[in-house]
């Protein structure tokens, strides 16, 4: 047994800051905070809608405030990062047999991106015609 074992120092709370790969990992994990905050805001909106026209009107006014716009801009960025990081690993979770091998990963990722685009378009168009 070595009398002076090498102990690599790993700072518990800042370890991910010294490597781009770790930073991207943490950014991916932190996307959940913005998803949760957005959903909480949406639920508050549902409550305001339930309370009546005046409550809803003040909620809408809040959504137009610079702070709300800034939050949603940042949340939109994190939500997109969540989506791309999630779809990019789908081949790891889905192994679809095809002939002697499997459906190539690129096809699976591509299908997810296609569906993402279609779903987004439906939501935006739905809002436009509503």
């Amino acid at each position: 047994m070595s009398r002076k074992p090498y102990v690599r120092e790993v700072p518990k709370t800042t370890w991910y800051m010294r490597n781009g790969r770790y930073m991207r990992y943490m950014a991916r994990e932190v996307t959940c905070v913005f998803l949760a905050l957005y959903m909480a805001g949406l639920v508050i909106g549902l409550v305001r809608l339930m309370q009546g026209p005046e409550a809803w009107q003040s909620y809408l006014a809040g959504l137009s405030s610079p702070v709300a716009i800034l939050f949603h801009l940042i949340a939109f960025g994190f939500a997109c990062y969540h989506a791309t990081s999630w779809f990019n690993v789908t081949p790891k979770a889905m192994r679809i047999p095809q002939g002697d091998g499997f459906v190539p990963g690129k096809t699976i990722v591509g299908a997810h991106y296609g569906l993402w685009g279609a779903a987004s378009l439906v939501i935006i168009v739905l809002m436009g015609v509503l």
Partner: peptide, 24 residues
Amino acid sequence: GTISAFVVPAMILVTGLLVPLGVF
């Protein structure tokens, strides 16, 4: 994770940005 990846970016875009900015 899957359902939010598909729909949340567009939901934020619509309810948090496009509608408050008066696009619709």
